[in-house]
Design a protein around this nucleic acid. Structure first.
Lengths: 242, 242
DNA sequence: CATCATTATTGACATATATCAAACCTGTTT
DNA sequence: AAACAGGTTTGATATATGTCAATAATGATG
């Protein structure tokens, strides 16, 4: 699989914000779980198109997506913007801001969403005390690096339809990891946003969808997608000539 | 500036491998510097085109480039490959492997080079004891994320000549940060490698070089580059229409 | 239900970049 | 010095994707 799929542990009962299970799914001793409460994360709700943070905001916290989904994007001076990712339940957002203490990109809710705010100072302090947590935090950051490099491969060496196939297969896997259908799902983002993420124009995205449908690989009804021929879609990826 | 320029502290005298100054340039107390010796990093030398590590290798250490330069690249099943970065003196390499304990990409020396091997277990243990080091490690990882996202912007929304201009300006800044000339330098990589990194074919890279030269922006003699009109080159970046 | 704004689809055409091929350097080996 | 190999430049042409424009869906609002 081209784009790495972040691990995700399905949540159990979630009283307040069940950190150990949802935000940071790792095995901890009872004592460590107790210590983790010191994070005392706050939950915050967002409506569609609300900003979780904006470019230039002071960095204080990472955010674990509790429900819903977000996009992150970079703005360039000359108005260009690039969607750098779509994040869904259980994924951590805001890692890029650690480097300068200022958010470099902005995060926008794609639907009504709830996030867990994780104050980074506390997270660092705790991860000095709990090696398992420390390692987990490092893995999360490293996984983001791997993900970004996967997108570099996609943007740098794949043609339009291959990119869209990779995108759909990645979404499929991530939905499946959350116990949802791997073959039928609702896109939360516009053609324009998909295009920005995949480095192509919205018309090209639309045409690629139509072509996949004509090939019998998927069924598209605007934002409702059904993958009809999973193997066929995967085959798109390996049919490179470059 | 589009592509972020990693901070770099020029080295002072370097007896063995002056960690605090070169690999991890941070301010530490005398005691902390002493503790840092526990890392007991080993230096290793590489010739041009030697592998520092290969895709699939077990991850044990990060590497700080002491002298020389490397490229990192991902290999895709179907033979495609994508250069994900060019690293030079003082930069840290191998962060992507933390996520799975297996190297996801491979690192190849572009010239004779020396690296400092930093055993990651020891680095983690030490960073639990030295908060400054912990924060520094987090910043290094976050900076890599920001860098990668800058490349996503470049690959996703810039045209060929803009990409090359951004690339040259980024190199220029990184050379300058090392006390070298910002306007005259030697490329360590081939047109092919530049093309892979920037998502374009080597012929397109070559044409873009020629065009810049014809515009009087740079002077190119194969791998020797002189930036004649820095402002003009920067102006290329802002002349988008997309 | 009608209207409006937004988003998506589709077509015709333009263009940036890839592809293929030849010639040209540059440094190395014999 | 000649021959060679790898890298680079340049030209002619092909093609994938962008651009512009019209139409069609979709969902929101009065």
């Amino acid at each position: 699989m081209l784009l790495p799929v972040p691990t995700y542990q399905p949540k159990s009962a979630c009283s307040s914000c069940n950190l150990a299970e949802i935000c940071l799914p790792i095995n901890l001793s009872e004592f460590e779980t107790y210590k983790l409460d010191e994070l005392s994360p706050v939950k915050r709700s967002f409506s569609r198109s609300d900003y979780l943070y904006r470019s230039g905001d002071k960095f204080r916290s990472l955010f674990a997506i509790h429900s819903g989904s977000f996009k992150t994007q970079i703005l360039h001076e000359d108005g260009r913007e690039q969607v750098t990712g779509f994040q869904m339940t259980g994924e951590i957002i805001g890692l890029d801001a650690i480097s300068t203490d200022i958010h470099a990109c902005e995060a926008v809710a794609l639907e009504d969403s709830v996030v867990c705010e994780l104050p980074f100072n506390k997270l660092e302090a705790l991860s000095r005390e709990i090696p398992t947590l420390q390692r987990h935090l490092h893995k999360i950051m490293s996984r983001e690096i791997v993900r970004d490099q996967g997108i570099m491969l996609l943007l740098g060496s794949m043609r339009a339809e291959e990119r869209l196939a990779a995108f759909l297969l990645n979404l499929s896997q991530r939905f499946a990891a959350r116990g949802l259908s791997a073959t039928q799902f609702e896109l939360r983002m516009s053609r324009q946003e998909i295009g920005s993420y995949l480095g192509m124009k919205l018309e090209t995205v639309s045409r690629a969808f139509s072509h996949f449908q004509a090939q019998g690989l998927i069924s598209v009804k605007v934002r409702t997608i059904e993958i009809v021929n999973l193997a066929g879609l995967q085959a798109c990826l390996n049919s490179s000539r470059s």
